[in-house]
Amino acid sequence: MKIGVVVNEGPYTHQASDTAYQFTKAALEKGHEIFRVFFYHDGVNNATRMTVPPQDERNVQKNWSELSAKYNLDLVVCIAAAQRRGILDESEAKRHGKGEGSANLAPGFRISGLGQLIESGIQADRLVVFGD
């Protein structure tokens, strides 16, 4: 089955991203296809490579990046929500004159439009939303 996942909250404050991760991992291990994980609202904050959590704690961003690498997961960050919250890839950082090396998008994530969320709803058999 093709499942779309939506993450509406950032890491650490809310459990939403952790639950979404555990759900996504379980779905993949069961052989389901994850059509896309879409990060919206504060959920875009899961995609910054700048977090440095204590070593004995889980690294939420890394969890997603590694899951993406293992299963070729499509992790999409909403561009409008990302711009509000300072999540930038190379081309966005350049376009907004934020200076060399200011891009902070973590590996495995890509920035795109809200249309990707609607497409998830259209293409996937199920859409599961995690938030607060």
Binding site: G113, L114, G115, L117, I118, E119, I122
Partner: peptide
Amino acid sequence: EVVLIGAAFEQ
């Protein structure tokens, strides 16, 4: 904002 963008998809 999702509703406005979604309108283009004619659902």
